[in-house]
């Protein structure tokens, strides 16, 4: 079973994302900021990470830099999921090592398409 870490300081977003991801048979863990997320990753590197930008303590952007320098930290597919809906932020996220970017608000269709794009989900059979 593939594992997924949802990192967001909003419990509502974490819950919604968890529901979607569990529908697609991911084992889901949650973290409310980048510091907690880094601890989780050190214990177990997930297959995918859904990552908010603005969070207390360690932001999503800072977390991504730290994650990518960890042993095994290059492996997780990271999908940023943020209210920063502009070209500059998207470009920064990709340069920092994000694999995809979701502009909030999002729904299950968008998340699904992004996970197909990063290879964590198979496209639906034709």
């Amino acid at each position: 079973m593939k594992t997924f870490l949802v990192v967001d300081d909003s419990s509502v977003v974490r819950k919604a994302a968890r529901r979607m991801l569990e529908t697609w048979s991911f084992k889901v863990e949650e973290a409310e900021n980048g510091a907690v997320a880094l601890d989780r990753c050190r214990q177990h590197m997930p297959d995918g990470i859904l990552l908010d930008w603005n969070m207390p303590e360690v932001t999503g952007f800072e977390f991504l830099g730290l994650l990518r320098s960890e042993a095994g930290g290059a492996a997780p597919r990271v999908v940023f999921c943020s209210t920063h809906n502009d070209v500059a932020h998207i470009a920064s996220a990709l340069s920092a090592g994000a694999d995809e970017y979701i502009m909030k608000p999002f729904d299950a269709d968008i998340l699904r398409e992004k996970l197909v794009e990063v290879g964590l989900l198979e496209e639906e059979p034709l």
Partner: peptide, 23 residues
């Protein structure tokens, strides 16, 4: 719309092939 450019469009195409005009 923001919704339309997120369904199926890889984000690198969004950066390369689109210009943002407000929302």
């Amino acid at each position: 719309t923001q919704f339309e450019v997120q369904r199926g469009l890889p984000v690198h195409y969004l950066l390369k092939c689109f210009n943002q005009e407000g929302q």
